[in-house]
Design a binder for these strands. Sequence first.
RNA 1: GGGCAAGUGGUGGAAUGGCAUACACGCAGGACUUAAAAUCCUGUGGCCGUAAGGCUGUGUGGGUUCGACUCCCACCUUGCCCACCA
Length: 859
Amino acid sequence: MAYTTHEIHRIEEKWQEIWRQRKIFNAQMDSAKEKYYVLEMFPYPSGKIHMGHVRNYTIADVIARFKMMQGRNVLHPMGFDAFGQPAENAAIKNKVDPAQWTHGCIDQMRQGLKRMGFSYDWDREISTCDASYYRWNQWIFLKMFERGLAYRKASSVNWCGGCETTLANEEVIQGQCWRCKSEVVQRKLDQWYLRITAYNEALLEDLKKLSRWPQRVVTMQENWVGKSHGVNIFFKVKDREDILTVFTTRADTIFGATYIVLAPEHPLVEELVKGTPDEKEIMAFIQKVANESKSLRVCGDKKKEGISTGRHAVNPVNGEVIPIWIADYVLMEYGTGAIMAVPTHDQRDFLFAKEYQLPMRIVIQNPAEPGIKEQDLTYAYEGDGVLVHSAQFSGLSNVRAVEKIGEWMSANPPAWIGETSPDKSQGDLSRRGCHVMGKVSVHWRLRDWLISRQRYWGTPIPMIACDRCGIVPVPEKDLPVVLPENIKITGQGGSPLNYCAEFVNVLCPRCHKSARRETDTMATFFDSSWYYLRYCSACDERQVFDKKEAAYWMPVDQYVGGIEHAILHLLYSRFFTKFFKDLGWVNFDEPFIRLLTQGMVLKDGEVMSKSRGNTVDPDDVIERYGADALRLCILFAAPPEDQLEWSDSAVDGSWKFLNRLWHLVENRYVPASGNMGREAMDQADKDLERARHTAIKKVTEDISEGYKFNTAISSLMILMNEIDRYHNAAGNAMPTGGQTMKQVLLNKAIRTVVLLLSPFTPHICEELWEKMGGCEESIVRVPWPAYDKDALQQDLVQIVVQVNGKLRGRCEVRPQITEEEIKELVLADAKIQGFLQGRPLRRFIYVPGKLANVVVEEG
RNA sequence: GGGCAAGUGGUGGAAUGGCAUACACGCAGGACUUAAAAUCCUGUGGCCGUAAGGCUGUGUGGGUUCGACUCCCACCUUGCCCACCA
């Protein structure tokens, strides 16, 4: 029977059906067995699966099947991240119901995944848009609310005009909406936040436990949480009682501070400029900056703009009076929204000072330009050096001064104490903690997570606003707050739920008078922050997840997904896990032990995407070559973490290889019995056995150590080549139907290829295994083969001979040969002698089993 | 501006201190065929040479080493991430 396209489809469908019927991939908790949880980032159901999905899920599937064969109890679930904007956009554009559209996409996607033959436990499938799932979102939200981790606050938020909704900091990329790329602007709004910053220390500290995550993801998270050590310095406003707190990591430059800059949004600004001659002009400037888009404001190349307040501040270390400015380059979101400017040692301050002709003073000597004057500077010196013009700290290295000055400021009163009048201000200031110059402090970059979205297709936030009782949570017994259907979605006028009277108008759970339901929905990243826990007991209707099941299955042993989630999703998931630990629902700190970020799939050097129009439909490939060839091709073409350049001819190659394997079993596999001891083997037999064991070793190590599927597959190709060679050489000794020992060895090698290849191309391997008389219910139940060290031994090894590091010959020796013996052998060799040209031997290096290097005088 | 990753034949890639280019694609030649496809065999970094063989060769320049694709320093290029973060 030929391995035709028709035959491939029959085989693939046959085995997919068998897996389903025999429940091969249904996971059961079994404390007697060691578990293994392998998980892929679940897809957004946008329709058909694309090559990115195929790659992601094929990688994880190989791992899952490999672990199954190694005897682990494997949990490998799949589901759909089904809430989100595309469904709403489709509703606006095509006038279809988001729920209907989403379910259509899910069906299509599920079918695509099944066609690939992935080893999912479909009984655990979840969809985040089902009330059976999102009710637990609401439950979690209530638990967070109880503990003060979910709160409502009015503040300036990121607003995307394109999506007509708010965005989390993490969703703003270069000042633009991560989804639609619209400019993000700031708006004052009352919104729901999650207090992720309560965990900032743990989110940073526990990164140390993630030794099996890619370093760059850990670094990205580290930078995002952004802990910086520095000093809060208290500057008093001259002739007023106000204190301006500035944060700096460069306390060593405090004596070089020549002006103060406030962010335009700084709360003290209005107060400070009130009644001053330039008030109007200043307020106009602030308004102008406020109207600017975030990306423009945050662009580093932009000319820095500012305006003087006319007010002055007193430097606590020396009583120096310096001007207070307002400028767009200082951001309210970071630090205290106020900085001390040191133009000589900070490039931003330098540019600003040049622009507005503000004074500067050098306080760190640049060793490359000693004695340079302030007016001759062309850039700020940000490097290390010795302090000058810094009172008692002059002469100290700036690195040490950072610490020393911080300590000194924390322990001593400011210069203006006692100098200010009237006297009563002193007591007032001390009460505010300003009896010292500054305070060593830590600032974080991480902000609380804004989760309100003015969208329809998401989890309703389970809160009710009552005029009498304030914000009241929906009682647990009333969950879920079901998302109403048949809503008109126009894409305009804010949250569509606002217009749904039966949803909005409710009775207050506390006073039972009329009240209004919250109409914002949760950001969809909420849904995906805990779905891995839900899979542990996906059908449990009584609780968010089963503690016992989660204790058994969690944490996820291997997580596979795209690098694009390196910050958002992974950070949020880590936060939720820590929250569940505090709730007492889990007993571990981190959800994902090992993380693999697969590379992108490219076509003609560009990322494959719908908008570029360079996609290759996996379905078309399956139609022509089958799922196995597609899987093999995508695994063989590149290591999983690298970018993968799609090429049609590569599938052709995989298909040819599977064909060869098919015909190998069809034509060369002849049932035979018996066993051949090593002593009875000739050289060819030993070589075949060695090739077989080498392949077992290599494939096992390549899969488990670095997920080097491409080299694992190539070693199987090598074994196949060896089998062909062996068969051709042994032709005469192997008559058709022969019961010879050669046939036994050959069969063994063929069975090994099929077993080792089965995680990569499961359908064809199941079929061939069955043909060869395997009687297990599935090949994943066959134990993974082990290799024998003795069989790897060679009787003779080839040694490379070098003269002065250059390859000059080879020799075959016993592996046990001593250095003395080989030295004698090499030096006696006529060819080597020719290269030595009689020069005296200086050194002889022997790397056992590999190489000998004769070192003589050059020339 | 900062961080990370990468740079190897015509192509995808292999080798992490010891034979550079495994394995595959492509290409060329051959076998089979009336022919084509498929399949099988052989060859395939560059230069010189009929050959044996020699020289050269992993982005560039230096260094360490008996020996460097691999380690160190500097630079160039590309990709990704972050970015007026005080």
